[in-house]
Amino acid sequence: MSIYVISIVFSVLFLVAVLELVRRQRLKEQYSLLWILFGVLLLGVSFNVHFLERIAEWLDVKYAPALLFLFGLLFCFAFILHLTLVISKLTGQVLRLTQELAIMKGRHREGEGGIR
């Protein structure tokens, strides 16, 4: 089996898995869009071998399928960056929620007549 066939099978399975996760509400639509884009691109590249070979030739890459790996690696970097952005936002929100809750707890205690 060539890397191209494996690639096609993998990207199809991958797309199905992503869509199924969204359908079951395990993955939010807004976070699935990048994965779907990745799956579709991977599928497109896997199907169009000539396109990949042309780019490999143009970039002076001797082993064309290596481009697939490069492509996948770059995407992983992009996605990890996206994830850290999301985590940063969540960190800020959790902090604010904790602060609000702590202040509210304090006020609540005062209202109960200073019972600690």
Partner: peptide, 17 residues
């Protein structure tokens, strides 16, 4: 563009549940 993609996906997913 994001709006169209996100909402279309959401509608199709919601309909398939």
């Amino acid at each position: 563009v994001y709006y169209m993609l996100k909402v279309t996906l959401s509608v199709l997913m919601s309909a398939s549940r």
